[in-house]
Design a protein around this nucleic acid. Sequence first.
DNA 1: CGTTAGGTTGAGCAATATCAAATTCGGTGG
DNA 2: CCACCGAATTTGATATTGCTCAACCTAACG
Lengths: 248, 248
Amino acid sequence: MAHAQRISTGLLSARFGRAVTLADHEIALLHTIEMRPRGIFAPDSRLLAEGAEVRTASIIMSGWACYIRQLADGRRQVLGIVLPGDAIGLSRQVQLVASSTVLAITQVRVADASNLAGAWRDAARYPGLAAALDVVAAEDQHFLFGQITRLGRQTAYERLAHFFCELEYRLSSRGLSMNHELMMPMTQELIADVAGLSVVHVNRTLQQMRREGRIELTRSKLVILDLPALREAGEFHAPFMTRSSPVK
Amino acid sequence: MAHAQRISTGLLSARFGRAVTLADHEIALLHTIEMRPRGIFAPDSRLLAEGAEVRTASIIMSGWACYIRQLADGRRQVLGIVLPGDAIGLSRQVQLVASSTVLAITQVRVADASNLAGAWRDAARYPGLAAALDVVAAEDQHFLFGQITRLGRQTAYERLAHFFCELEYRLSSRGLSMNHELMMPMTQELIADVAGLSVVHVNRTLQQMRREGRIELTRSKLVILDLPALREAGEFHAPFMTRSSPVK
DNA sequence: CGTTAGGTTGAGCAATATCAAATTCGGTGG
DNA sequence: CCACCGAATTTGATATTGCTCAACCTAACG
């Protein structure tokens, strides 16, 4: 294939060094993670199964995955999307049981992040990383809360608008999207399982967004033509960042 | 008033000592928390405002609260219910910004849990507490995921069934409910904001549950008459606990 | 080129929302 | 104890959103 899917060198620095300034030895630790590929998962394979014990922490180096739960009759709900730079199974010490399945959407490249878990624990030696991991955890929670609000109280149009803004925000903050353009390896069926809608309704809502000139969406690429409008429609708010100045 | 609302002495031990055996000095630390009341919040007051900085960790000693987000036009979504024994603002080190408002449902008594945050950090000295906090965090995530699935893919009836089962499970595991009976200080409007439904529809769905003999629900008390049926209807699964025997 | 997964369209329907008007309940002052 | 008040619940009628079913189309891929 023409341009090999190369691990962007700065991915982890972008992810963990954005809100917090990292010391050299902390950046070095991030680099060791990039040097420790754990494996490659095929699309539709499970990175983790609900109920299984989580043995180690991993970081997605490339590809998309999602947290998903399935009901007995086959209904599925995507809990959240996992993007490059996101961690899986990263907790502090005890190893626990996965509370949802993690499913690969595309091919997914995973690196071993067990030493990142170690750094989180050892805040004395890795103050920057520990703080960064806190920020990341808070950000994750922010988006999880956004997903709940979307599903509980927003209309189909709003849900999709909000979801696209979330993707755009998360990817561009990691240097994985520019000009509001992003790779979109999701079928409409998967989008439906994110948004708690039927495929048909997703399709119609997307067409409306296209008609209104707000997005372009092909099989593999999403272009947000009018980000402010989408943000307004979906009431999307970027997560609060830690800041130096008080909030009043 | 007749029976003063006394802090149940075993609340924190029940919450944190259930999955993990705690050492004496760890139990002692829990007791110091119970000795450090931070304040009392009136119904409808805010324990924390979205966007505000979280300064310290607290634990609810009595009363109910909820995480809530509000949309511009007034639509509200309850993200999760906060019960006695639950922590608020408990993170590891850095103090961050609240990603949702915490609203008191009833009068709420809060204790200072900053030393619990300290114990989480200092796993060497508090191995049991640190592990317990991990388990609790995993449990919280389990219920958050449950909320997403509920809202995204379950019917009104299923959502309410699942929600009631969650409450029953969480309260009884802390010794705050027996025989599937529990205090229910929520109006139907608040239940609607949990379940992502309209008040009217909640009302009708509750009546159906009553007709079917599955629950009794008065203004202040919920009796689950047929817990297995409700669990089945809502596909409620208790969170996985850490266990000694392998899962296969 | 044929196959197939994914996308699109139309028609009818079901679940749930909205609106508006009772009614009940828990307190509260007389 | 009674009458009253506001909040919460209940009811009826109607509207709407989003779902289901079924067919058809399109593009990627072997």
